[in-house]
Design a binder for these strands. Structure first.
Lengths: 244, 244
DNA sequence: GAGTGGTCTAGACCACTGT
DNA sequence: CAGTGGTCTAGACCACTCT
C-alpha cells in the first residue's frame, strides 16, 4: 500500500481506525452474541496492517467497550451483575468487606419531570420520567435509600418490567431490555442530615448524618440516561474510593 | 537471539522487562533530572528487541511512573502541584468548578502514635508521628479541616520543614524533601456531624453534617506513609468522583 | 546530524477455541 | 485442522530535540 489508505488527517492511523470501529459499535452494528470481525478482516477492510488494527482494538478493549478472547474472537462487552457491583457500587462495610445488598422496592411512578430532572438528564420540556424508590438492605438492615429517575422515553414501560422482575442491579436490565449500556457515571457526594421520611425508612433518628450520593449515568453514546440520588447510613458502612 | 534471553517464566517477556525496570525505578536508580536509558539501550541490555522494551515502558508510562517525550527521552514522573491537585483533590464547588484552596496551618506536633495510627500506617509499637492540623480555605471561607499523620521515621523533622515553607500541597514536598513519591491512595468516606471544635474552625453550627474523608496514601514501594482525615463542609462544595 | 520516542508494516511463532 | 488473539522480532519512516 503505497498511498495513505485513509484521510490525510493529523491523527495517527490506528486512532482513526479505533474511532471508526467505536462508532460502528455505538451504532449497534455488532450483535452481542457474535464476535466482531477479526483483526485480519478489519485490516483488509480498512486497508491497513494487522498491527495497526491490533493497536486500535487494544485501546477499545482498555476502555472496556469490547472483550477479547484468544481463540474465540472480540466481543462487545456486556455488563454482568458482577461487573456493575464491582465497578459502580462503592459502599463497603467498615470492615472493608463489600456485600451484595438486597433490594426492597418502595414506589415506582410516572411523573412530569421537574426542572432539576430536565437539567440533569438533558430532557426536553414536558417529558415524563419514571421515578423509582428503593431500599438497599445489608444483613437485614436498611443501609441506603435510593431515588432513581429515568426518562420515560429512553426506558418506556420500566414500571411493568420492574413489577415482573425486581432485579438487584438495574444497569444489566437497562442493557437487556432497552439495549442501553451504561459505560460511565459522575458522582457528587455530600453530607446531609436525615429528615423524618429518610429516618423512617432507614430506621434511624432524625438528624443522623447521611452520605448523599448524586449519580448521573451515561450511555455509550455519552447521553445522561439515569439520575440516582442515594442516601446512605454510614454508621457501619462507608464509601470507598481508590486513587491511582 | 536463538535462546530465551531471560528466565523461562510463564510471564510474557515484555512483562518481565517491565517489572525489572519498575524495580530499578523504585530502587531510585534513575536520577529524576536525567532520562532513563533509551529503548535501544534497554533492548541491548536485556537482549530483547526494541519493540518488547517499548511495550514494557508503555505500560509503565500508562501507570504514570514515567513520562515520555519524543526527541528527549523517558523520565521518572514527578508530582507537580498541578498533578496532585487534579488527581488527589476531589472537592469542587457545587457549580462544578474546582478551585485551588489556600491553607492555614493550625498545629504541628510530634506525638506518640495511637493504636489506630499504628494500624493505618503499619508502624512498629512506640514509633513517633508528626500530627499536622490545617484548614483549607476557598474564597476566604474555611471548607476543610484536615488532620495529617505521618511517621517521624519516614518524614524526620517535618515540623521545621513546614515552619519554613507552608506549602499548599504536601505530596510534592514529600517528594522533594524526602524522596518519597505518593502513587496511590485509598479513601473511606462517611458522614458525621460537627462537634464544638470542628464547628469553631469551620465557622458553622454544631450538628452541621460534614463529609469525613479518611485517606491513606501509599508510596511507590506500596508502603502506607500518610494518614489524612479531612472534614469537609458540603454546604457549597462536594466530593466529585467519575466512574469509567 | 545523531539520537529520541511514535507510528506502521510484515512476518514469525505460540496458546487457545472451534470443527 | 484452520482461525483467533497474544507475543516477539526486525526494519522502515516520521517528528522532534539537542548540540
Amino acid at each position: 500500500m503505497a498511498n495513505p489508505p485513509l484521510l490525510p488527517s493529523s491523527q495517527p492511523l490506528f486512532s482513526q481506525i479505533k474511532h471508526m470501529i467505536v462508532d460502528r459499535i455505538k451504532a449497534g452494528e455488532f450483535n452481542i452474541a457474535e464476535p466482531l470481525p477479526s483483526e485480519t478482516e478489519f485490516a483488509r477492510y480498512y486497508n491497513v496492517s494487522q498491527g495497526t488494527v491490533r493497536k486500535a482494538i487494544a485501546e477499545i478493549a482498555a476502555e472496556k467497550l469490547v472483550v477479547r478472547f484468544r481463540g474465540k474472537g472480540t466481543f462487545v462487552a456486556s455488563h454482568t451483575e458482577e461487573r456493575e457491583h464491582s465497578h459502580f457500587f462503592h459502599i463497603v462495610g467498615n470492615d472493608r468487606v463489600k456485600k451484595l445488598p438486597g433490594t426492597k422496592l418502595l414506589t415506582c411512578a410516572r411523573r412530569n419531570a421537574t426542572k432539576e430532572m430536565e437539567k440533569r438528564l438533558n430532557l426536553k420540556k414536558g417529558e415524563d420520567v419514571t421515578v423509582v424508590e428503593r431500599l438497599r438492605i445489608v444483613d437485614d438492615l436498611p443501609i441506603i435509600l435510593e431515588t432513581i429517575i429515568v426518562s420515560q422515553k429512553t426506558f418506556p414501560d420500566l414500571r411493568s418490567v420492574l413489577n415482573e422482575t425486581v432485579p438487584n442491579e438495574l444497569y444489566p436490565l437497562y442493557e437487556a431490555e432497552y439495549q442501553t449500556r451504561i459505560v460511565r457515571a459522575e458522582e457528587c457526594i455530600s453530607a446531609v442530615v436525615a429528615g423524618a421520611r429518610k429516618a423512617k425508612y432507614l430506621n434511624i433518628d432524625i438528624g443522623t448524618p447521611l452520605l448523599q450520593i448524586d449519580r448521573v449515568a451515561f450511555s455509550i453514546e455519552d447521553i445522561p440516561v439515569e439520575w440516582r440520588r442515594s442516601h446512605c447510613n454510614t454508621a457501619n458502612h462507608h464509601y470507598q474510593n481508590t486513587l491511582n
